[in-house]
Design a protein around this nucleic acid. Structure first.
Lengths: 193, 193
DNA sequence: GCCGAGTGGAACACCACTGTTCCATAACGG
DNA sequence: CCGTTATGGAACAGTGGTGTTCCACTCGGC
């Protein structure tokens, strides 16, 4: 082995890694708009041949799994950036909400493509999910989050607000910035005891 | 004309009307869970032959249109029952929320099947939608609804909360009743100035 | 400039769903 | 009770996505 990585099977050449990313990114963007888009469509959107897509992801489910892993990774990174343990829990959730908002299409996808959440990485509790629920509990304890709202409800609420904000930006002319502001404003009021 | 209706083409015999309902109802329940379910699945769920489904709805899109009309009708009825003009606007929206909650599967369907909203009845503003937005404006005027939240955002918010509530009942063990309570509690706080 | 990795396209079999026709039979209603 | 009405199933062709193979190409890095 030279400088390259060799995680499980083999290191991926720079070219392969780039093509792979192009396909996954295009798939995320496309499937967010229409979860039933064909692999041919994905290939076209990625600017590669359909054959190439099949070379990287033998079956459709393989592509879905890759997307799932990708989103999961981004969620983990966003959670990291939000520094959930700093300051009041309510504020921490607002920061998290901002970070999640930036995920964009990946977000919509999780909402509209339950099949994504059907692969191995999702059934067991995610680290990010656990950190989220812990933070809500911390908020309950320190009194910065309404105790009437149980953890799962807060989680659902956050996702729903994020989805709404994107929907707002998409359908009405609202800018992403204002949509996020509405989202955070509403979250703050909802969480307050 | 005797007692029967003869709206556009012809009155439907009792038998036909019943079969039609069975198909539409089954389709709503099934498609809410999986928007890509086949017509064969719908037929099976409705307890009729696939041929019969095609007899009532020649093409898939015809069935979708019928479902769209059905949901639209139920939304209109729910809006009626909520008596939006009575009392404070914020309370009116809470009543509306309760009524919408009862729509159940029809609700999920509107979220997950944008194709439904692509038929004729949806593109132009619905009467129900107009009444909703009017009520929000009334709330702004009388001060019972936070003026920071524009009408569209409130609409998105209500739908998102309803979806969350059903999700809550579906995934966590929460009873429908408690889920609705959380939903209303959150809405009340979010709307308050 | 060369060689191999990486690619695109054509052609193929396959499958599931769709929409249609036809016929035998069951249910309904007067 | 009998004829009309409604139904279910089988069989069919058509369609579009899927997954596979093969071959000619081009591009990148040494």
């Amino acid at each position: 082995m030279r400088m390259g990585e060799d995680r499980s099977v083999a290191a991926e050449s720079g070219t392969r890694a780039r093509t792979r990313r192009a396909i996954v990114d295009a798939a995320v963007a496309l499937l967010a708009g229409d979860p039933t888009a064909s692999l041919g469509d994905v290939a076209a959107a990625a600017g590669v041949g359909r054959t190439t897509v099949h070379r990287y992801f033998p079956e459709r489910s393989d592509l879905l799994a890759a997307i799932g892993a990708d989103v999961l990774e981004k969620v983990a990174a966003a959670t990291e950036r939000a520094r959930l343990d700093d300051g009041p829990a309510a504020k921490a959730l607002e920061r998290l909400c901002q970070e999640y908002f930036e995920l964009g299409d990946g977000l919509t996808l999780m909402f509209e493509t339950p099949q994504l959440t059907n692969w191995s990485g999702w059934d067991e509790e995610t680290e990010a999910d656990r950190r989220f629920l812990d933070t809500v509990r911390r908020g309950h304890a320190e009194g910065s989050i309404d105790r009437e709202l149980d953890e799962e409800w807060v989680r659902n609420l956050v996702w729903a607000l994020l989805y709404s904000a994107w929907e707002q930006a998409r359908t009405t002319g609202t800018s992403k910035h204002s949509a996020l502001a509405l989202c955070l404003h509403t979250l703050r009021k909802a969480l307050a005891p």
